[in-house]
């Protein structure tokens, strides 16, 4: 490869090709991130020009904050049910849609539609569905579990959030599973049929093991998105009623921008960073590991 000689030429090439991106990347991502770590060690309230360094105190406050833990465990519950349901539904849809049904492409596109639309709009649509339509259906059919809005009930609001998220993401994960299913060699399935394997056995013994790489992708993607959910949460329930659906991102937002406790908010945000980073690193680890085995 021909390369420029001399320091000046090299510097010029760097500035032209990588300079702008590097500058923007540092000013938007790296510096704020590092500054954020510093902020979490101060008592800044968002307004005062002067603030001091207070060490680990914010992190201690976070660990003793019951509302934070409540929000964290709510998030865990939400993530658990969303991840399981999304993956099961997405796999079933993908399985049914790779067997030569008429109008397959239309169906795939149809299930995918909720993904195109932002969480805010989806949340607002379902807000109407839960607070008006389902209540109307419940009242006219005398179904007691539907005759009051789920969004006003602290026991049920989180489930409303789970339902919307499952609806939102299962089409996307279905597409990933379809790609995985299409790549399974036909000869394998045919050989199994000749050997007399039933449909159930074929799924359990052949298809599912071969789908592990797809599941790694969908599991971690749903995990990540679950921990970071904000838009749907805001538009559907706004954390209510009585904080029964205030998930971790919203908790951080409210701590920082509404309660003006920026240092504590940033400490909580850093906690969220550790979780998301750990999930992503685990994904990289597992997909590498299974790649070798395949």
């Amino acid at each position: 490869m021909v390369t420029e000689k001399g320091f000046c030429a090299k510097l010029k090439a760097f500035l032209i090709f990588a300079g702008p991106t590097t500058f923007v990347f540092f000013t938007v991502v790296i510096i704020p991130f590092l500054f954020g770590i510093y902020l979490s060690l101060t008592n800044w309230d968002g307004i005062a020009a002067a603030y001091r360094f207070i060490g680990w105190q914010n992190y201690l406050t976070v660990f003793q904050d019951q509302l934070f833990w409540k929000s964290f465990f709510l998030t865990l519950k939400y993530v658990f049910f969303t991840v399981v349901l999304v993956n099961v539904i997405a796999f079933v849809l993908a399985y049914l849609l790779t067997r030569g049904v008429k109008g397959e492409n239309f169906l795939r596109a149809g299930f995918f539609v909720p993904n195109l639309i932002g969480g805010i709009v989806l949340g607002l649509i379902w807000h109407f569905v839960f607070s008006r339509v389902l209540v109307f259906i419940g009242k006219s059919l005398n179904l007691s579990f539907l005759s009051y809005s789920w969004l006003a009930n602290p026991e049920k609001a989180l489930w409303a959030l789970v339902i919307v998220s499952v609806w939102q993401y299962s089409g996307y994960m279905m597409i990933i599973h379809i790609a995985g299913l299409v790549n399974i060699p036909k000869e394998l399935i045919e050989a199994a049929i000749i050997d007399g394997a039933s449909a159930g056995q074929r799924i359990r013994r052949i298809i599912l093991p071969l789908m592990v790489p797809s599941f790694v992708v969908t599991l971690f993607l749903t995990l990540q998105r679950g921990f970071m959910v904000y838009d749907v949460n805001l538009a559907l329930t706004d954390g209510g009623p009585f904080r029964s659906t205030e998930l971790i991102s919203m908790h951080v937002y409210k701590k920082a921008f509404l309660a003006q406790e920026y240092g504590i908010g940033q400490a909580q945000a850093f906690f969220l960073f550790i979780i998301v980073a750990a999930i992503t690193l685990a994904q990289v680890y597992f997909s590498k590991k299974w790649e070798v085995e395949m």
Binding site: F25, G36, L39, M228, F270, L281
Partner: peptide, 28 residues
């Protein structure tokens, strides 16, 4: 070395959720 380091930094930064940056970003 510079290319390698910057590329690594960019890939690594994909681990950071937006929520971990938003407060300092608004501040700066």
């Amino acid at each position: 070395r510079i290319s390698k380091f910057l590329f690594f930094l960019m890939v690594a930064s994909m681990l950071i959720p937006f929520q971990a940056i938003m407060i300092p970003l608004v501040r700066i």
